[in-house]
Design a protein around this nucleic acid. Sequence first.
DNA 1: TCAATCCGTATC
DNA 2: ATACGGATTGAC
Length: 664
Amino acid sequence: MAAASRPASAASSLPIARVAIDSPLPHLDRPFDYLVPEDLSDHIVAGSRVRVRFAGRLIDGWVLERVQASDHDGRLAFLQRGIGSEPVLTPDTAVLFRAVADRWAGTFADVVRLAVPPRHARAETAVALADPGSDRTDPATGGTGPDLAGWQRYRAGSAFVGQLERGGTARAIWNAMPSEDWPLRLAELAAVARRAGRGVILVVPDARDVARVDLALSTVLPAESHVTLSAGLGPEARYRRWLSVRRGAARVVLGPRSAVYAPVTDLGLIIVWDDGDDLQAEPRAPYAHARDVAVLRSSLAGTSLLIGGFGQTAESAMLLRSGWARLISADRFTLRSACPRITAVGDDFEIGRDAAARSARLPALSFRTARASLEDGLPVLVQVPRRGYLPAVACVKDRTPARCATCNGPLTLASAEGIPTCRWCGRTAGDWCCPVCGSRRLRAMAVGSSRTAEEIGRAFPGVITRISAGSRVLDTVPPGPSVVVATPGAEPVVECGYGAALLLDGWSMLSRPDLRVAEEAFRRWANAIALVGPSGSVVINAHPSLPSVQALIRWDAAGHAERELADRAELGFPPVTRLAAITGTPSDVAEFLSLVELPASATELGSVPVPEDRSEDDQIRLLLRVARGDGVALAEALHAAAAIRSARKAPRPVRTELDPMNLG
DNA sequence: TCAATCCGTATC
DNA sequence: ATACGGATTGAC
């Protein structure tokens, strides 16, 4: 791909390339027409990366299409050169990226940056071109199919699989049963879609889940036919794998949230596992949630979609309520055979007479349950919401939270005899005294994973105790009697399941200042319970009358999510409405707001200061609400306002998020 | 009346 | 960034 030295003439056929510019400026987020030099014509196709002269400087761009004529009035410039030989956009993904940019009030370039890994020239020449006929010889498309008995245990499970087998379109929310081998179930769906000749995307929250599903895929698909895309690979491997997808060599793609954008050939099925995990929310502009992108892509491309998990989000409930998706769940009878016994004990629990149980702050039932499991030779999972030793301490007299004198961060204790240390800046505060009453003594307001492990170790002397939390997460633990203390999301998997799980400090799980607390508590509890075998027992340390606890005991994720959805409707929050959060300095936000032509249904919900630890200067966050149907108009108006500001060269862009995960 | 200069805007 | 057009200014 040599640079054109002063192009003599434009290509004789389709001489115009419509180019999207790689610029973050919203007012430049539209196509610009360039003449294609005759000698580059063969290499410049829709989807090609190109370099163009734009406003006097060279800039990267992507060719959206080749056309015969331009409607631009002025003189057209020639394309400077092509970059590499690879069309990185497909007709499918180009439409998707534009739709995502539009829906979340972002720019096309921002979405491409998330979706297309940086080019690596060596990888580009190394990856073999896929044989276009390879699909027919792919072993995945022949032979006997996977055993699908696992899906027959679910209502509507067989119907969903059958639809995939026929190459049809089906959309479902899947409430998995406890101890379900979900990686295998998802791999089976991928295999079915492959047998129907279609490509598949599987999106999971994190690297551990990628590893588990990867293993399951290997049991049902030939090795070369699936590929994992994760950021931890390094630039060359990352680009090479992505290219093997782009070129059609790999038709099943597995990865964390950005895998939802993968350029899979003849995509037929998108799977999103555990959409309630915050890792599914993209922290980079335009802040689109992987589940929502999957829904959008499924609509645009007419593919099947499965959103699965042990919990269920209000967003999924909304897809069910509108009839867009069907529920796949087990009936009461099937559930009974899969569910461990789940009991809740609230604050008024019977304190154990046993001194060991008392010192481990375990209710008598929890203690007995754990002991029974250990006696059966099975491991016990202990879920603790917080990591560390004593992650929150306060004045022993008036319970004023202990804070750092320098940065106002929360103080923690790393051991029983330790000095209070700031969680934010790491400074020690040996001379702390209560700002209200002057007392120098601290009490624990929350007990973390390592202190819990210490206490449990005392309660069960001689039993191996392991901790999985923070930066030291265990993927698996060996079967056999042991106690595993883990924070939510860090629970290790154990072959054949845990014999028991103790879910401690439920009050802490339900007292976080977050719109989604109940949904998140249910999800965290359910994910832990799912690791317990059918004959095991679970004790939740939360009041049994709480709706989330009730739903959990019934293993009724859909009912819980419906209730959440009703609450959101009452409060006027997404997904029932559409919300925008505008973040910036107070004057920037005010200026921005004055430029937005809001839809008629728009309401200002007021603004809150952004917490100091999350931004440099003083910023505020303004919330706007519109009716769900005005979501498109709102995004358009926000994009237009951002365009005006960027055209005026406003020094600091304001940040706009649609339907943000966290409101606080 | 015309050239020099300034400002805002578009950038193909 | 840079180029362009329209408006503004100032000197003849």
